[in-house]
């Protein structure tokens, strides 16, 4: 096995859209949470999904690696429809990095183990090789000195940066961020966003559910505004934040800006 180039971390190499959602619908019981979602995300594209709580944006993000199964429609990753539960699905998930609001680091494993576990157990990478890659990633997100600690001993911002490293260790084709800064104290938000901006600059394909307008303006190619389970508006960050078209978006932006 050859040593992979240090950057970018993405293992993607194909052509055509990387993530495609066709008429995706999802219900929680009677609640229709995703309504006819159509979306196509290109390689290297950074899409920020924004919207009021309960609009379905987190569900959309979780549906892309099938943490939430959908009832209708098709989601394709690199041209392949998402498989149902089983080994195939596990294999696909390995190619999709996910960063959670609550970090979800493995509580009984050290920081380093959190990052090496996936490559070793899922990708069958050799321990030493996984370790070397993990140390490089931890260095990159600025938590290399915490490698031997347990997650509970780290601040929220540090934990979230480890979570980013854990996802990157799998050399994913696309990274999903489900409100990555919502559970963080204000002074820790920047360190996580900085890591995400770096990643975007390197050309990683990213879907980011977030209200961080600064991040959207700096790093996003496109903003998708969701309300009541639909994508109401899609445009460039500048266009969306300065000149929103729909009433829902104007109303929402008014609420998050004025205070």
């Amino acid at each position: 096995m050859t040593v992979p180039a240090p950057v970018p971390e993405s293992a993607d190499s194909g052509s055509g859209p990387l993530v495609e959602l066709d008429d995706v619908n999802k219900w929680f019981g009677d609640l229709h949470v995703l309504k006819d979602i159509n979306m196509s995300i290109d390689r290297g594209e950074v899409v920020v999904v924004i919207g009021p709580s309960g609009s379905g944006k987190s569900t959309l993000c979780r549906a892309i690696n099938r943490l939430e199964p959908i009832e209708k429609g098709v989601i394709r990753l690199d041209g392949q429809p998402l498989p149902a539960e089983g080994k195939e699905l596990a294999k696909l998930r390995a190619d999709v990095g996910m960063v959670f609001q609550q970090f979800n680091l493995f509580a009984h494993k050290t920081v380093l183990q959190n990052v090496t576990l996936g490559p070793v157990k899922v990708r069958k990478v050799k321990e030493a090789e996984a370790r070397e890659h993990a140390e490089r990633l931890l260095e990159r997100v600025g938590v290399a000195d915490q490698a031997d600690k347990y997650p509970a001993q780290l601040s929220g911002g540090q934990q979230q940066r480890v979570a980013i490293a854990r996802a990157l260790a799998m050399r994913p084709k696309v990274m999903l961020f489900d409100e990555p800064t919502s559970a963080l104290d204000p002074e820790m938000i920047k360190e996580v966003l900085d890591a995400m901006v770096d990643l975007a600059k390197e050309g990683m394909t990213m879907v980011v559910v977030s209200h961080e307008m600064g991040f959207a303006r700096t790093a996003a190619h496109r903003v998708a505004f969701m309300a009541d389970g639909r994508i109401v508006e899609e445009s460039t960050p500048d266009e969306f934040f300065t000149n929103p078209k729909s009433e829902r978006a104007k109303d929402f932006l008014g609420k998050i800006i004025k205070h």
């Binding site: 596990a90 294999k91 979800n104 493995f106 509580a107 899922v122 854990r166």
Partner: peptide, 27 residues
């Protein structure tokens, strides 16, 4: 055990057995 632990293990491509054996049961 927080459901996020199982979700995180599945999101890095672990099978059900790996998720249960390596992440959930030890905790």
């Amino acid at each position: 055990v927080d459901v996020g632990q199982a979700e995180a293990s599945r999101s890095i491509g672990m099978t059900f057995g790996q998720s249960l054996g390596i992440i959930v049961l030890p905790q």
